[in-house]
Write a protein that binds this DNA or RNA. Structure first.
Lengths: 125, 125
DNA sequence: CTGTATCCGCCTTGATACTG
DNA sequence: CAGTATCAAGGCGGATACAG
């Protein structure tokens, strides 16, 4: 399966998705939007630690990729609503699988790291 | 679901996994190792574009996390074999789901980007 | 409220050279 | 073959100030 992966091509599926979820915030934002539509400030509060700049940037990228929609309501004060598109929703499933894996294996990984570090990073013989 | 995510805590499952797959090479290396054990130089050839330094670094991280094992054979020339652990294998599944998603939605995303860029990044009204 | 613009430091990565 | 060491470049992301 991995044979047809071509990390060189920018339009390679693997690379495309990796570039998207590798930016540290995308997955978290999509996770919050899974609950339903949210406005800018709500997202900022929910995704703890994200800066305004990164939130905007993440949202723009997701919009550009067609994974979320951005709706501006002509009100005062202005209100902008972000919501997952059909495609965006389909991304939830694989993301949730990853989340599940992480939850189930977190302890083992933490233990492994501790053991590895304790012996100075040399487990082989 | 997303409510209990805490991006602040370093041991949060989400963050941990994100840090791991966000480094651009881990997923590719795991993908190659899915085919079976490989030696260092083989991995270097299969994961096109990776530098020796990054390959080493990626391998060390995976070993530290208990996702792969490193076996040194006392031969001349030296031979080192990397193989997925039990935990490493379980990671394949969610990774494959992600890969599948990427493959299925790649075209749509590329189209979306083109459309977005054509109108100067302003799809909202 | 919802952004945009700018400066800037850190970390990741790549290139290169060297070793057991 | 399988790394390690070092240095430099670039991008990511944070902080801050400002605007519609």
């Amino acid at each position: 399966m991995s044979a047809e992966w071509d990390p060189y091509r920018g339009d390679c599926p693997s690379r495309m998705l990796l570039d998207r979820i590798g930016d540290r915030w995308t997955v978290l934002v999509v996770g919050v939007l899974s609950d339903g539509p949210h406005r800018f400030s709500e997202l900022g509060r929910r995704v703890v630690g994200i800066s305004q700049k990164m939130l905007t940037q993440t949202l723009r990228s997701l919009e550009r990729d067609g994974l979320i929609t951005r709706t501006v309501y002509a009100e005062v004060p202005p209100r902008v609503e972000y919501r997952l598109t059909e495609a965006g929703h389909t991304l939830q499933e694989p993301l949730r699988a990853l989340q599940t894996w992480a939850t189930e294996h977190m302890d083992a990984v933490v233990d492994s790291r501790r053991a590895y570090d304790r012996v100075g990073g040399r487990l082989d013989r």
